[in-house]
């Protein structure tokens, strides 16, 4: 909390970067549309394929990137803050594994025949909820939620889920296999506008709750007992943080698949940049997580156009390189 004012300056800078990235993402793609024409297309109400490309192909992807990138980043921040462990990310607690298992089963058992296109996100979300409920029940005892236990059980559940996914994949038809693999790789291409709105809404909501608890998270960084003596209702707070992080992650994964690395690398980068004060960290992570994912998705779209890379390839590579570089430049301890 050395220089709060300077850190708020960072937030404005990140906001500007986010806006720039969104504009950039709108402007580039497999089809070339000159910048001047974009402004014309956005302001004039005319029917043209280019306008459809801008408003119905690129814009929804940007909004989904905003929701998913921001959501995963804040989940990462608050989980790392609560568990006081630098290796934790939103997927550590088995949420992505549960969602992926739900989707696998849905594809193999042909759930889309009954529920249509909503069956995939729905089954993903149900899988995530199942895991959240399981992990939560097992790790809570009468004395409250034990964090080390939560972490270990989460990790075990992830391993079990990935074994079960392998089992399902080994037994399934070639055609289903392709669907499963593509879903697991993750993508921001989502045709249903309602799902995009929901994901965006849930993650903004999660960010607001996280912000409300950010002062408590600061107190918790001193230790559970110290936080309790500072007047934080530690047990209740732990439960809320866990549920918020899980539901936000579950929603993101259910809509866009398992897009890795954002929830791990963005919180760390932001700690390097704005320091450990969660009040600023949460806001900064949401903004930069969104900007990072939108940028990675744009790169994935254009790098080998008209084909597209899985966005996870870019998030992993760019995120990893960026993080190692930042870490080697600055003295950083969690």
């Amino acid at each position: 909390m050395e220089s709060s004012r300077g850190n708020i300056g960072w937030v404005f800078l990140l906001m500007a970067i986010l806006l720039a990235v969104m504009l950039f993402s709108l402007a580039v793609g497999a089809v070339e549309i000159p910048i001047r024409r974009i402004f014309y297309l956005l302001t004039e109400n005319c029917e043209s394929p280019e306008r459809a490309i801008l408003l119905k192909v690129r814009l929804p992807r940007i909004f989904l990137g905003l929701g998913v990138g921001g959501g995963l980043a804040i989940s990462g921040v608050i989980l790392q803050g609560m568990l006081r462990n630098p290796l934790v990310e939103p997927y550590t607690l088995g949420i992505s594994g549960g969602a992926a298992l739900g989707v696998c089963l849905n594809i193999v058992l042909g759930g889309s025949a009954i529920l249509g296109s909503l069956s995939t996100p729905l089954s993903g979300f149900l899988g995530a909820l199942g895991v959240i409920f399981f992990v939560y029940t097992i790790s809570s005892s009468r004395g409250g939620m034990r964090l080390s236990r939560l972490l270990l059980i989460g990790v075990m559940v992830s391993f079990m889920a990935s074994s079960l996914i392998m089992l399902v994949m080994a037994l399934s038809e070639t055609r289903d296999l392709h669907g499963i693999i593509f879903w697991i790789m993750g993508s921001l291409e989502e045709p249903n506008p309602w799902l995009i709105k929901t994901a965006l809404f849930v993650s903004v909501f999660g960010a607001v709750i996280s912000f409300i608890y950010s002062a408590d998270l600061n107190a918790l960084s001193l230790g559970e007992e110290e936080a309790f003596h500072l007047g934080v209702r530690v047990e209740r707070m732990k439960r809320i943080i866990f549920v918020i992080a899980s539901v936000v992650t579950g929603c993101c994964v259910a809509v866009s698949g398992v897009i890795g690395f954002i929830g791990l690398v963005v919180p760390h980068l932001m700690r390097l940049l704005v320091g450990g004060d969660h009040r600023i960290l949460v806001v900064a992570s949401f903004i930069s997580g969104a900007a990072f994912l939108i940028l990675c998705d744009t790169v994935a779209r254009i790098i080998i156009a008209p084909m597209e890379l899985p966005v996870g390839v870019i998030t992993g590579l760019v995120g990893g390189v960026l993080f190692i570089y930042a870490l080697s430049r600055k003295d950083y301890s969690f």
Partner: peptide, 18 residues
Amino acid sequence: EKVGTVIDANVEKIIELS
């Protein structure tokens, strides 16, 4: 004109071709 692969078509490209 190429619009992608069998499993991954580029929506933008296809729309542009109307």
